[in-house]
Nucleic acid binder design. Structure first.
Lengths: 139, 139
DNA sequence: CTAATTGCAAAAATTTTGCAGGACT
DNA sequence: AGTCCTGCAAAATTTTTGCAATTAG
């Protein structure tokens, strides 16, 4: 991670512990939208003493600071995304893969939300990726 | 529940136990997108012996048969919706309320999904409902 | 009558919490 | 040095499972 980024993180009041940096870096280099467990498993070899609590604590802080987004698509499992520009997602119902969709979508703000405060929206596409589509065969 | 509906449910090969009927009816008369626990709590007074397993089993069957949809918006909690026509949702980050959005949205199918099987999509709007908006005050 | 469904209790999966010791600034 | 962070273990939350007893068709 470069100097500028380090400074930026410090400016948010974050202590830059090795574990925290590793989690951030892992997320930034990884567009697979990993779960807390994925992150834990990936980093465990490098930080044998690291605990789940640290992963969860760190993710919570990163989400608070807006550096990471929480994705709730897969049932009962949070997944995390360090790509924070507005974008959409495709969820494969077979292998649970999530891919980023960067198309612009022309969303109409519903009149029902007139008196609401709207902070963001996203489109989620569901279906089967090419591999899973083939595995299930024709129907 | 009327005759025609009962016949329809039977035609799907579903045994119509009192618990199952109560769950279905509760969902059909309720657009709050309840969780399994909400359903359990609502029906407990009428079926003191009913267990969580029954609620979960029933919901699973109803989802399989396409009578109910599972909604994964709130982190780590499944919610259920008997309104199965395609529609969108608003999620209040304050009180966790989910409301239906029935606007048509002109979604562009992304070219990234060319070789994918697309089964459905939905737009999720996030923000604060009028009550929660006021509670948090201006910022 | 038979297979499907229920209820119970235990287990699984994921996330949260309290606290003591340790590390970052 | 002081505060924030880590690691551990226990708890909390939600969902799933195994199995014996019951019930709908």
């Amino acid at each position: 991670m470069n100097e500028a980024k380090l400074k930026f993180y410090k400016s948010l009041g974050l202590k830059l512990t090795p574990q925290r940096l590793a989690i951030l870096e892992y997320l930034e280099n990884n567009r697979s939208h990993p779960s807390a467990e994925d992150i834990y498993n990936a980093l465990k070899p490098h930080f044998p003493s690291m605990s789940f609590a640290t992963v969860y604590n760190t993710l919570e802080v990163l989400v608070e600071k807006g550096l990471v987004k929480e994705i709730n698509i897969e049932s009962n499992k949070k997944r995390f995304d360090a790509f924070t520009h507005p974008h959409h997602h495709f969820f494969c119902k077979g292998c649970k893969k999530i891919i980023d969709i960067e198309n612009n979508q022309n969303i109409t703000i519903p009149k029902e939300l007139k008196d609401y405060e709207l902070t963001e929206f996203q489109v989620i596409f569901y279906g089967f990726c090419p591999e899973c589509k083939n595995k299930r065969g024709k129907r």
